[in-house]
Write a protein that binds this DNA or RNA. Structure first.
Lengths: 157, 157
DNA sequence: ACATTAGATGTATTCCATTTGAATGTATAG
DNA sequence: CTATACATTCAAATGGAATACATCTAATGT
């Protein structure tokens, strides 16, 4: 019972974009932040773009930004997109499928799971803005950090 | 977002055992019923036995039976056992872990998921007893089927 | 006692999905 | 025109799950 890394990375990227406000953030930058595969993140970003969560900007100083305010993006919608909504079990070819009550129960449980996520917005996750901005090394009006080009590296990696 | 086949098979086996009442059912028989791997099911049965869900009986006419009545076994406990209770995401090494609110939200959603399953018992799933007994080809007092040695085969397999 | 049956355990191999990597195309700012 | 960054496709690799094989232990019927 684990979220795929696909979902994991998508959520992380969205958090970073939410924290970065209107500024464009390149895929490369996000990948470097978390120390994850650049190519993989590209595909994830592609999917997020097609689904209307983010807006890609091409060209020299391009990058990604949220297509809508973080307060209007629910986590449920995100997870639904990255994980898919298909059933938890595959009953094709199961002998007892016609009499089995399991799929219904599992669907109900899944619905409860997503209902909780529907109750949270991206802005709720990224609410500790100052802490996150510091971790992302985003310069603020008060006091920008000394080296914005090379973001903090993950110590455990 | 799928249940592992491990969980799937465990649930199916438990349903068959619940439907079979006090009678012993061999692992081989269950495997043949669903057309799944005998050896794999053995390991799953092992785990179920160790966890106290089923009671294995060795020897010539041995087999498996439920350790407790089906009405006292909750689906939540079963899924918790087969899927494990660890977190949905692995945050070790994630840069923003200290400020990230995601794990809490996911844990809450997971809890809601399991809470639904906790509300159902194995007996609720196997409630259509007569249909299931027919599918499992279990002889009844009224009219036993003609060939109890060779159970019905899955048509789609 | 002995053979038979069924579960218990361990190892190894196969299989599949996810993840990653590489190469190429497309668009845009300067 | 060129450098940069996203878009797309294909192929390799990694890791976990599922399966197969081999062997052992325990209980039962003869």
């Amino acid at each position: 019972m684990k979220l795929s890394r696909h979902s994991d990375y998508a959520l992380r990227a969205m958090i970073q974009l939410a924290t970065s406000g209107d500024e464009l953030v390149s895929i490369r930058h996000i990948a470097q932040t978390y120390g994850i595969s650049h190519n993989h993140l590209m595909k994830i970003a592609q999917g997020l773009g097609r689904a209307g969560f983010i807006e890609p900007v091409r060209g020299r100083h391009g990058g990604l930004r949220l297509a809508r305010p973080a307060s209007e993006i629910s986590l449920g919608a995100l997870v639904r997109h990255t994980e898919g909504e298909d059933s938890l079990v595959d009953c094709t070819g199961c002998l007892i499928a016609p009499a089995c009550g399991l799929p219904d129960v599992l669907a109900e449980a899944m619905q409860a799971f997503l209902a909780v996520l529907d109750g949270y917005r991206l802005s709720d996750i990224a609410n500790r803005s100052h802490m996150l901005r510091a971790l992302f090394d985003i310069p603020t009006s008060a006091g920008p950090s000394q080296n914005a080009a090379d973001p903090v590296q993950c110590p455990a990696d």
